[in-house]
């Protein structure tokens, strides 16, 4: 039996139709939407769905990468290949530029992360380009603050999310009306789980960066997390790098995204591993979300993805 058959094709069909419908609705009602693309699997699925939504016409909006400068080389190579293959317009918003302009101050120390700074860069880019809606690959199963978020998430003129004042979303009737300077975040994958994402990738043969598949990498173990050595991660006293067979479950800022030990080198193998996983992808791979119980809620209030 193919692993694709272990979960419901009918359920994945429903999720696919729902996501396409949301993308079409927002793209049609809003004047200047953008799709946030990190190079991760969720944004790869989102971009794939967006392409299907308007076929045979071209994607009617650009794609934006918020570039922390702490990238995996494989991800940037993948991004550029995809943009060329699909003929989409790419906007790059650079965290380094935000720092250079004095818009944000970088954390100090060996554990400095640019994750929080992304919010500043993102909001500046949204204002600069006049985007009124930004599609994101966020899923409600990722985090309990996300579980409370609407499919269309309203942001005020400062880009803030107020969880106490969310618009009710009865039925599937989306309300994308905003005033000038405000914007929406649209989450077409709200009802998807990590396993649904992998099912979709397998069914539609969505290309992914190679780091999602098992490979050998030099890593260092810090707070139970395997961080790649050679990029932005600075070794601390006493830390010993070693070679390990790993893959990534999420793709984010290389300074705080951990690899997991895995020999899953095919989609079938990854699907089986995901179905049996006992730790959430954020818990397994994101140092930034284990800081506190409300880490995600706090970042979201400030304008995070």
């Amino acid at each position: 039996m193919s692993t694709l058959e272990i979960v419901s094709a009918a359920h994945l069909d429903e999720l696919t139709d729902e996501a396409i419908t949301i993308i079409r609705e927002v793209a049609t009602e809003c004047e200047n939407p953008v799709l946030l693309f990190s190079g991760g699997k969720d944004s790869a699925v989102l971009l794939h769905l967006a392409a299907l939504a308007f076929a045979p016409a071209r994607l009617p909006f650009p794609v934006m990468h918020v570039d922390t400068g702490h990238n995996f080389a494989e991800v940037i190579e993948y991004r550029d290949r995809l943009v060329a293959d699909w003929n989409v317009r790419l906007v790059v918003a650079s965290v380094q530029e935000s720092i250079d302009k004095g818009r944000g101050v970088e954390d100090a120390g060996t554990r400095a992360s640019r994750n929080r700074l992304q919010s500043v860069t993102l909001l500046d880019a949204i204002a600069e380009h006049g985007f009124d809606a930004a599609f994101g690959g966020g899923r409600r199963d990722e985090d309990k603050a996300r579980a409370k978020e609407r499919i269309l998430s309203f942001r005020d003129r400062q880009g803030r999310w107020d969880p106490r004042a969310q618009r009710p979303e009865p039925w599937a009737l989306l309300n994308p009306r905003i005033r000038k300077g405000e914007h929406l975040r649209a989450f077409p994958l709200s009802n998807w789980t990590e396993l649904d994402i992998w099912q979709y990738i397998a069914r539609h043969e969505v290309p992914l960066p190679t780091i999602y598949f098992s490979h050998t990498r030099t890593v260092v173990e810090r707070d139970g997390m395997l961080l790649a050595v050679g990029g932005p991660v600075v070794l601390e006293a006493g830390e010993q790098p070693f070679a390990e067979v790993v893959r990534y479950r999420t793709v984010g800022d290389a300074s705080c995204t951990g690899a997991v030990r895995s020999d899953a080198s095919t989609l079938d193998h990854i699907l089986a591993e995901t179905a049996a996983a006992r730790i959430t992808e954020r818990g397994a791979t994101r140092a930034d979300d284990t800081f506190s119980e409300s880490a995600m809620e706090d970042r979201k209030r400030e304008g995070y993805f």
Partner: peptide
Amino acid sequence: PADAAPTRPA
């Protein structure tokens, strides 16, 4: 088990 096999819409 988490790798259950639902066959109907949710």
